[in-house]
């Protein structure tokens, strides 16, 4: 359960102050499927960073599963990221020198999970992503779609409640993009809260709940089946 109340995020650009987010309030129940759209500079990426605990709002309250996160120390926020939030990036951000399996296992390495448990879980994830035959390939030996699937595997390996995807299909062709969206929706179907930031209206429309942002504010917030 994600609850944002009166979130403000300002950046100083030169002498001016840019309000990347102003008065954003949002409540997302578990298992929700939300798309965030809007023009460049509308604050959708900043919103995603705040939701992912990578960025701290200047004002307002952000409760994740009932825990107020805005005043937590860095270490606690890192722990929440590790256990509750998965990230999928447009540029994949795989570690080039690690194999697909090691990239997927990286969050568990950072969390200090024992090698045996790690291996079993990575195998499980690779299996569910249909990537078992690519386990020992390095990212530069994988196609774009496969890379993003590895990145998604990494995002879910710690079994988080929330999956944040920032333009997940931005670097992919139509076919690979469709596969990735399908995979994300399958994960959402299994209960994970999915939040997708995208430019692509075709992908944005697929979400059950569609948020449109302009100038750091939520302009519209529609729920229900997509209207074409």
């Amino acid at each position: 359960m994600i609850e944002l109340t009166g979130i403000e995020r300002d950046f100083a650009v030169g002498d001016e102050t840019v309000h990347a987010l102003s008065q954003v309030s949002l409540s997302l129940p578990d298992g929700d499927y939300v798309s965030v759209m809007g023009p460049s500079g509308s604050g959708k990426s900043t919103l995603l960073n705040v939701l992912g605990l990578l960025d701290r709002p200047n004002a307002g309250s952000y409760r994740l599963d009932g825990v107020e996160t805005t005043d937590l120390p860095e270490e606690r926020r890192a722990a929440l990221r590790r256990n509750h939030i998965g990230f999928v990036f447009q540029a994949f951000h795989l570690v080039p020198r690690l194999s697909a399996a090691d990239n997927i296992g990286l969050p568990m390495v950072l969390a200090g999970v024992a090698p045996d448990a790690r291996k079993a879980r990575v195998h499980e994830v690779l299996d569910s992503l249909d990537l078992l035959d690519r386990a020992h390939h390095r990212p530069d030996q994988l196609s774009g779609g496969q890379r993003q699937r590895v990145a998604i595997g990494r995002a879910i390996v710690m079994k988080p409640g929330v999956l944040l995807a920032d333009e997940p299909t931005g670097n992919l062709d139509q076919h690979a993009g469709g596969e990735v969206v399908g995979l994300l929706e399958r994960l959402n179907g299994a209960g994970i809260t999915l939040i997708v930031v995208t430019h692509d209206p075709a992908i944005g429309r697929r979400a059950r709940r569609r948020i449109r942002m302009v100038d750091g504010r939520i302009e519209s917030d529609e729920s229900g089946d997509a209207h074409t």
Binding site: L54, A78, R81, L110, R154
Partner: peptide
């Protein structure tokens, strides 16, 4: 990335 994956400072 390491930070996003939950590595503290």
């Amino acid at each position: 990335l390491l930070k996003a994956l939950g590595a503290p400072e």
